[in-house]
Nucleic acid binder design. Structure first.
Length: 281
DNA sequence: CACTGAGCCTGCTAGC
DNA sequence: TGCTAGCAGGCTCAGT
């Protein structure tokens, strides 16, 4: 499940290889993968444009085009963006049924989009639409401006379950189920804790945990549990660093040995240690 | 505002 | 062994 570190890695690996390339063709193999505009309008908007840069905002990959417009790609659950230097070379047959879209460049290289579950979305946005979308998103946790004070202010202003709050992309971007569970465990905060009732010490610990965990994951090119690959097809190496995500209930906490518990928070499966992360502090 | 549930999807797996 | 129900989860929308 690509979250901030995975999306960041895809953007970083694609940026140097896509920059300057001219889009010569687009193929859509699953109609719902293109969210907007219509296929004909999309093709008209991107054909002949060259790529200025590949970046990231939240969990969204933003491909900036020479005319000011942008292509955005959301990988959702199983999306994979892969650069291939030569489209004439055969693609792996076993993957073809999951190919949802394809960009072809003027020099015969290509960018393919695989997405088993079909949740991924591609859009074209004008400069205005992009800034509108940008404004609807929350704070970037690895930006200079994301201070411990800012996080404390965010938590104080809401009365929500902390896990649901951290998953809300309009508040803080980039965190998904994996890194939220990891960060809450590191900071020793119960996932159901009311955000406004988290004290300054826990809040500061949460800030450090989020920044550290995301930074480490990026340095290891992301967490590959199953589908995720970088823009060049390499798996990440952060999966070995996960402390509790993916473990079953009753397995011992890696810190204290207490059996872990599983609950559902914000409709997401949640693993935590009832001893390290007590509900009342 | 906070929260819940359905829907979008396919592949894996636990359990019969 | 073979089948099926249930689960996985990012995000949106409708409803309480």
């Amino acid at each position: 499940m690509p979250e901030l570190p995975e999306v960041e890695t895809v953007a970083r690996t694609l940026n140097p290889v896509l920059r300057g390339r001219v889009i010569a063709g687009f193929q859509l193999l699953w109609h719902r993968t293109l969210e907007r505009p219509s296929l004909t309008a999309f093709i008209e908007s991107v054909l002949g444009r060259s790529i200025d840069s590949v970046g990231r905002r939240g969990k969204l990959i933003v491909v900036r085009l020479s005319d000011g417009g942008s292509i955005t790609i959301h990988l959702r659950m199983t999306g994979e963006l892969l650069f291939r230097a030569d489209h004439r070379l055969a693609r792996p047959i076993e993957r073809e049924s999951h190919l949802r879209a394809r960009f072809e460049f003027a020099d015969d290289s290509e960018l393919v989009f695989y997405d088993t579950r079909k949740f991924g979305k591609i859009t074209h946005l004008s400069a205005g639409e992009l800034s509108e979308f940008d404004a609807s998103l929350g704070a970037e946790p690895l930006a200079e401006t994301f201070s411990a004070e800012l996080l404390r202010t965010i938590l104080e202003g809401r009365q929500r379950q902390i896990k649901a709050l951290l998953l809300d992309q309009s508040v803080i971007v980039g965190l998904g189920n994996i890194y939220v569970d990891e960060a809450l465990h590191r900071a020793r905060i119960h996932p159901l804790h009311r955000s406004s009732k988290i004290d300054a010490e826990r809040s500061n610990a949460l800030h450090s945990a989020i920044v550290d965990i995301l930074s480490t994951a990026i340095s290891l090119q992301g967490t590959t549990l199953r589908d995720y690959r970088t823009g060049l097809g390499e798996p990440g190496e952060n999966q070995d660093r996960l402390r509790i995500y993916g473990r079953k209930a009753t397995t011992p906490c890696p810190d204290c040995g207490t059996p872990l518990e599983r609950i559902v928070v914000g409709q997401r499966s949640t693993i935590y240690c009832p001893s390290c992360q007590p509900l009342t502090t």
